[in-house]
């Protein structure tokens, strides 16, 4: 997984490139928008980490240029200015996520990983989550390259969680996902399917319950630093 870090501040750029490299990414750095544009033109990157406050052409203009050139790679925007206008502008211009300085290396790495996963999911229809591979197109769950049998409802729940990996999916939403399959839905149907999925996933992936909010599919903590 290759990431281009576009950041003019050497201290920050150095820390980010080292941190992301430790998290298992291949990292390149560009110190200006012009150089970033050249790099993205000539080589393939899975994601760009883009600082807004660049000298010369700023990050937002670079982003706009990229999107108008038809580049779809996920872009994580970094900024020291947390105004609502900046956020809205960045998202309008096609940023995929927004992180405010200062942030933690682990958080940046986790978010980058999630963005790349989602991008891969939308292009290849596959989600790789550590030892787990979820093939949305082929409706298959593989753990350590071994196929795991799922019932239709279990698959619907897993698919919904996988499509939002890294995010919390509300119980209502999971209910909606399976309601067409099973008209006579018991109130605790979601709990039942989540519980079955958990035992099938075992220690390869975690489905975390967030009280009052919903469920989140996670890579087990020990495997998180590996970018796959």
């Amino acid at each position: 997984m290759r990431i281009l870090v576009v950041e003019d501040n050497d201290l920050v750029a150095d820390a980010i490139t080292r941190g992301l490299a430790m998290a298992g990414f291949a990292v390149d750095r560009a110190s200006s928008a012009e150089r970033a544009a050249m790099a993205l033109e000539s080589e393939h990157f899975d994601l760009a980490v883009l600082d807004i406050g660049l000298p010369g052409i700023d990050g937002l203009n670079l982003l706009r240029q990229l999107r108008s050139d038809g580049k779809t790679l996920p872009v994580m925007v970094l900024t020291a200015r947390d105004t609502l206008a900046t956020k809205v502008e960045a998202l309008d211009m096609g940023a995929d996520d927004f992180l405010m300085k200062p942030f933690e290396q682990a958080e940046l790495a986790a978010r980058c990983r999630a963005l790349i996963r989602r991008a891969n999911l939308s292009t290849s229809g596959q989600l790789n989550l550590g030892r787990v591979r979820i093939d949305v197109g082929g409706r298959q769950l593989q753990i350590d390259n071994e196929l795991v049998e799922l019932t239709g409802r279990e698959w619907l729940v897993l698919e919904c969680l996988a499509l939002h990996t890294g995010r919390v999916v509300s119980k209502e939403r999971l209910q909606q996902a399976i309601v067409s399959w099973d008209q006579a839905l018991t109130p605790n149907a979601v709990e039942v399917y989540v519980s079955r999925l958990r035992s099938k996933l075992a220690d390869a992936a975690t489905i975390r319950v967030v009280r009052g909010l919903g469920y989140r599919l996670e890579e087990p903590k020990a495997q998180r630093s590996v970018a796959q």
């Binding site: 501040n9 201290l11 920050v12 150095d14 820390a15 080292r18 200062p102 933690e104 290396q105 682990a106």
Partner: peptide, 13 residues
């Protein structure tokens, strides 16, 4: 924020 980000990042690394 920017220098703090850099320093924190380096310390974490």
């Amino acid at each position: 924020r920017t220098p703090i980000t850099g320093l924190l990042g380096h310390l974490e690394v």
